[in-house]
């Protein structure tokens, strides 16, 4: 049921409208900062904020140890996102917690591709938990609709004295 064949592709239709032209021109002239992510630089936190349509700048909380800063953002959906940025300016961890899943590609970048490739292979994984503990990448994502929590971090990029236990949602 519900099988429909296209007689016009979505993009062919869109091409007839001028806004796409404008969008493409804008995209080309836009000097994009580095995208935005786990393993990216501190500027990516601001890119995330704009991408996720958050009005307020992330609040910053220096860690007690002084070796990193936590940038916390509340998305319009109510979900809280935290990005852990080292003094050297690297995003070494991201976390999320709230009623709706955030844009994980935006938060994790190429590591998201690692996750979905692994998800696609996981036949016995259960529907509520994704867990990956590799030497160079840890991802824990859990919950169900109305309650999602997760974190992803790069063990090799943790500042001295910081462990996975310090990465809290």
């Amino acid at each position: 049921m519900h099988t429909q064949y296209m007689n016009e592709t979505p993009n062919a239709a869109a091409m007839n409208n001028s806004p796409l032209w404008l969008l493409m021109v804008a995209a080309i002239c836009y000097a994009a900062p580095a995208l935005a992510v786990l393993g990216g630089d501190a500027a990516s936190v601001e890119t995330d904020r704009l991408q996720m349509k958050v009005a307020q700048a992330a609040s910053q909380m220096p860690a007690a140890s002084g070796s990193y800063t936590v940038h916390e953002t509340i998305l319009p959906t109510g979900t809280r996102v935290r990005q852990y940025v080292s003094k050297a300016g690297t995003v070494f961890a991201v976390t999320w917690s709230g009623p709706f899943m955030p844009d994980l590609r935006q938060l994790m970048g190429t590591h998201f591709d690692t996750m979905i490739a692994r998800q696609a292979q996981n036949k016995h994984a259960g529907r509520r938990v994704y867990s990956q503990h590799d030497p160079d990448l840890v991802i824990e994502s859990g919950g169900r609709p109305r309650h999602f929590v997760g974190r992803a971090y790069l063990p090799g990029a943790l500042p001295a004295g910081v462990t996975g236990q310090d990465i809290k949602q």
């Binding site: 429909q4 064949y5 844009d103």
Partner: peptide, 22 residues
């Protein structure tokens, strides 16, 4: 929800949807 049906004949999953998981 009919999983895998193409609403309005749209053959692409919206990007913000596929950006949340496989």
């Amino acid at each position: 929800q009919i999983i895998g049906a193409q609403p309005g004949g749209v053959t692409a999953v919206p990007t913000d949807c596929s950006n949340t998981g496989t």
